[in-house]
């Protein structure tokens, strides 16, 4: 890929003891691109996603965000993380803060916006993800689907350059998966750069520009969704798809 990507991973390696979780991973995500990472569990998908904002350290290789190498520690790392939004499997909304506060907090304490501006933006975003009426509630009072939509609003409030989703629907009851996927699909259409680790193949087909298939810490193949799901090239992708798509 000749074009400079917004997120560029070059020869990234990571080990947990003897377990080699990321092997020579190269990945470049263009501005506005939606990359969906799929693969069997233990493939290193989540680790890859978390490495992009350094919630996981890496052993070797480089990760660049918008031309800047990921800093190791301190203020520069914090500044860079503010530009990379993250949505977690278990939502991780601040349990002692209201929904509104969850979306306001980063704007006030990291972006140094005034409270009034931050609240205005928070209400807009909560409206956009369909939970405008719940602003005064605490996270535990919301359903999982609602909590995850708040988490997306919280990430969007930072106006990130790229949004990372680490299995955003895996902890949800089945009837709540779609409300979250709808918000994500809308974001993808609006041109948000997204890296999504998921098991939702429907979402991958519908919203992805590119599907990245990982197994055993490696990127095995990557392709446009129709090509990947229609004519997978590698044996491992074929057997993975056969297992999940036959029923």
């Amino acid at each position: 890929m000749s074009e400079q990507g917004l997120v560029v991973l070059d020869q990234v390696n990571k080990r947990f003891g003897d377990h080699h979780v990321l092997r020579d991973v190269d990945l470049s995500v263009r501005r506005g691109e939606v990359v969906v990472i799929i693969g069997p569990s233990g493939a290193g998908k989540s680790t890859l996603c978390r490495a992009i904002n350094r919630l996981e350290t890496i052993d070797s290789g480089t990760i660049m965000i918008d031309g800047t190498p990921l800093p190791e520690e301190g203020r520069q790392l914090a500044r860079l993380r503010a530009e990379v939004g993250m949505v977690f499997q278990s939502f991780n909304l601040f349990a002692h803060k209201t929904v509104l506060e969850n979306v306001v907090l980063g704007q006030v304490h990291v972006l140094k916006k005034s409270r009034a501006d931050a609240e205005k933006k928070a209400y807009e975003l909560l409206e956009r993800v369909g939970i405008g009426g719940q602003a005064a509630k605490f996270p535990a009072q919301l359903s999982g689907g609602q909590q995850q939509r708040v988490a997306i609003a919280r990430a969007l409030a930072m106006e990130p350059k790229v949004l990372l989703f680490d299995e955003p629907t895996s902890a949800l009851d089945p009837e709540m998966v779609n409300e979250v996927l709808e918000v994500m699909t809308a974001l993808a259409r609006e041109g948000m750069t997204m890296v999504v680790v998921t098991h939702e193949m429907g979402f991958a087909r519908r919203a992805a520009d590119r599907v990245v298939f990982m197994a055993d810490g490696e990127i095995v193949e990557q392709n446009a969704p129709d090509d990947f799901f229609g004519t997978p090239r590698s044996e491992r992708a074929k057997s993975f798809l056969a297992k999940i798509l036959t029923h």
């Binding site: 904002n53 203020r75 977690f88 991780n92 909304l93 601040f94």
Partner: peptide, 23 residues
């Protein structure tokens, strides 16, 4: 306090002391 709380705070760009103080 679940680890995810601090991870979410750090991923918003909050520093160590801010994460400790606010979350």
């Amino acid at each position: 306090v679940p680890v995810g709380q601090a991870e979410a705070a750090r991923s918003l760009g909050l520093g160590f002391l801010q994460t400790l103080r606010l979350i």
